[in-house]
Amino acid sequence: MFLDHGNPTMSLARFLPFAALALVAAPLQAQPVRPFSLAALKAAQAAGKPVLVDAFAPWCPTCRAQAPTIDKLATDPAYKDLQILRLDYDNQTAEKKVLGISKQSTLITYKGNREVGRVLGITDPVQIRTFAASALR
C-alpha cells in the first residue's frame, strides 16, 4: 500500500501522515520503574520531580504483593510524572541507612527535596495508588 517502487519519495510522503498520527495518538506513559541509586534520587529531587521509592526484597511476600501495583503505575498516564525507584533491600545497605529504611516493603514519596509520605507494608492497590499520588499533588 505504501510502497511505490517507482518513486520512493512518494511512498514516504504517503506514509508520513500515518506516522505522525500514531505519534500524536500514543498515550503519555509514566517513567518505568528504575533501580534505586542516590544519584537518581538526587537528580529527580533537583529537578523538582515527584518520586516513589520502593524498598523491595524478592523473598518478601508483602513486597511481591506490592510490586504489580507499583509496576502498573509505571504505565499509567495519570502517574506519568512520577519517578519510581526500586531499592534493592538486601544489597543497598548504605542507601537504606541514608533513607532511614529499616524494613522491606517500605514506600517513601518525595516532592522535590521534601519527603511527603512513608508507609510500611500496604498491599491494597487503591491505598498504594493513593499514596503514590500524594507526591503528585
Results as ranks from 00 to 15, higher is better:
Ile70Pro: 00
Gly48Asp: 08
Val33Asn: 03
Lys103Asn: 06
Asp54Asn: 12
Leu28Asp: 14
Ser11Met: 05
Asp71Ser: 06
Leu52Cys: 08
Arg64Gly: 10
Gln104Arg: 10
Lys42His: 14
Leu52Trp: 03
Asp81Trp: 15
Ala47Cys: 10
Thr75Tyr: 04
Ala19Gln: 10
Ala94Lys: 13
Gln104Leu: 02
Pro35Thr: 11
Pro77Ala: 11
Lys49Ser: 13
Ala25Ser: 14
Lys42Cys: 00
Ala57Glu: 03
Lys80Trp: 05
Lys80Cys: 10
Leu38His: 01
Ile84Cys: 04
Ala19Phe: 14
Pro50Phe: 07
Trp59Asn: 04
Pro50Gln: 06
Ala43Lys: 15
Ala74Thr: 00
Cys60Gln: 07
Gln104Pro: 01
Ser37Gly: 12
Ala65Ile: 02
Ala22Met: 12
Pro8Val: 06
Phe56Pro: 01
Lys42Asn: 15
Ala25Leu: 13
Leu52Ala: 08
Asp90Trp: 13
Gln45Val: 05
Tyr110Asn: 12
Gln104Ala: 14
Thr62Met: 07
Ala43Gln: 15
Arg86Met: 08
Ala47Arg: 15
Asp71Gln: 10
Pro27Arg: 04
Lys49Gly: 07
Thr69Tyr: 01
Gln31Ser: 11
Lys96Thr: 05
Phe15Lys: 12
Pro17Thr: 09
Ala40Tyr: 03
Ala13Lys: 09
Leu52Tyr: 03
Asp54Cys: 04
Tyr79Met: 13
Gln29Met: 14
Val24Trp: 13
Thr9Tyr: 09
Asp71Lys: 07
Ala26Arg: 15
Cys63Ser: 10
Phe56Ile: 03
Lys97Pro: 00
Arg64Glu: 15
Phe18Ile: 14
Leu73Trp: 02
Pro68Gly: 04
Leu21Arg: 09
Lys42Phe: 04
Val98Asn: 14
Gln92Asn: 14
Val53Asn: 08
Ala65Cys: 01
Lys49Glu: 15
Ala94Gln: 09
Gln45Phe: 06
Leu87Gln: 02
Gln92Pro: 13
Leu73Ala: 02
Pro58Leu: 12
Gln66Asp: 07
Ala46Cys: 05
Tyr79Asn: 01
Gln83Trp: 01
Arg14Gly: 06
Ala20Cys: 14
Tyr89Asn: 08
Pro32Phe: 03
Val33Met: 03
Ala26Phe: 14
Ile108Gln: 01
Arg34Ser: 07
